[in-house]
Design a protein around this nucleic acid. Structure first.
Length: 327
DNA sequence: AACTCGTGGGC
DNA sequence: TGCCCAAGAGT
């Protein structure tokens, strides 16, 4: 049996029931954006929450970007929220669904993978989507090294129909059987001719990435029940989200960034990002309200209830959670 | 072409 | 625990 037929046959009997399968084009699109670099299990609650707030394309297109950030908060990679909002407006103005790969990939936040899989699932046109799962399966099965080889093979093994099911079949196989660590080869429908299973191919080792630490300071100023809060419009990291006044980040530990005698250190917080570790010192800067509010002048006094209505990053929520202890 | 961009699952 | 890495895209 052909490679693609084995995948299709396995998928028919083993597919996962996921909330976006058999959904509208808008729902499938939303799921694909949320799933970029994010596990299915993490996405599911966010997916439902998002649809509750923005049930269809036009409600999203007509919303404000801040509302989108509010619903997206905690999911990470916030440029996705920004691009989704833009794409919704373009798509909504178009008045119909994109008709092919070129129209999909022209949209902000839609790259080669997302454009391919939407073309396959929604249009049933041939398109070789390559994500982490599919790359891993093809590399193992055919013993491939470079991404160039993977792309060629992916095109060559495409079926002649059922492109959506075939692609999702590969994804499910990658997520459930052909996992990165300890794949379940005994349950795999294509183990017989797999070069990895046969032991004739092994993945090349990756250089391990050493995560550097960056240091900074967060300043909490309290007035009655409110904390001085600012929206990040400057740095790309956590852009568009709200938080508390944050110093520039440095490679070395440093004394307080603003030149005032802050003596009331309340604690530290460590937060792990993809490419670095952030360590912040948290200050009670209430005695320096003037300094802080003039340096971060575009802020607001927000109480707990008001902050709940805005998009805060997980990092800032972590700090906020312990506010009562610290202040 | 590397870097940047979040957060949490899972082992 | 610390570490890899997840349905990648933009620059």
């Amino acid at each position: 049996m052909k490679f693609s037929d084995q995948i299709l046959s396995w998928y028919q009997h083993n597919k996962r029931e996921l909330p976006w399968r058999k959904g509208t084009s808008y729902q499938v699109f939303l799921s694909e954006v949320m799933l970029q670099q994010t596990q299915v299990k993490t996405v599911i609650p966010f997916f439902h929450r998002f649809l509750e707030r923005f049930p269809n394309l036009s409600t999203l297109a007509n919303s404000s970007l801040d509302e989108v950030y509010q619903v997206w908060q905690g999911l990470g990679y916030y440029h996705r929220a920004r691009n989704m909002h833009k794409t919704a407006q373009i798509w909504s103005a178009l008045g119909r669904d994109p008709r092919n790969y070129a129209e999909w990939i022209a949209l902000p936040g839609v790259g080669p993978y997302t454009a391919s899989i939407l073309t396959a699932i929604l249009l049933e046109h041939p398109a070789a989507a390559i994500d982490g799962n599919i790359k891993r399966i093809l590399q193992r099965y055919f013993g491939l090294e470079t991404i160039k080889e993977v792309k060629m093979v992916a095109e060559n093994v495409l079926p002649s129909k059922n492109y959506g099911n075939y692609t999702q079949g590969l994804m499910d196989l990658g997520a459930m059987i052909c996992t990165p660590k300890t794949p379940k080869c005994s349950m795999c429908p294509i183990a017989e001719f797999c070069k990895f299973k046969q032991g004739t191919w092994m993945p090349s080792k990756k250089a391990k990435n050493l995560k550097s630490v960056r240091y900074g300071h967060v300043y909490l100023c309290k007035k009655e029940d409110a904390l001085w809060s600012v929206k990040n419009t400057e740095s790309k990291l956590l852009k568009g989200l709200w938080g508390f006044p944050l110093s520039d980040l440095k490679e070395e530990e440093q004394s307080s960034y603003i030149e005032v005698p802050l003596t009331c250190l309340k604690g530290t917080v460590r937060h792990v990002f993809t490419h670095f570790i952030l360590e912040l010192r948290i200050w009670n800067a209430t005695s320096r309200i003037e300094d802080v509010t003039s340096k971060w002048s575009n802020g607001k006094w927000l109480d707990f209830q008001q902050r709940k209505e805005l998009g805060f990053s997980r990092l800032m929520r972590k700090i906020e959670e312990q506010e009562n202890i610290w202040i």
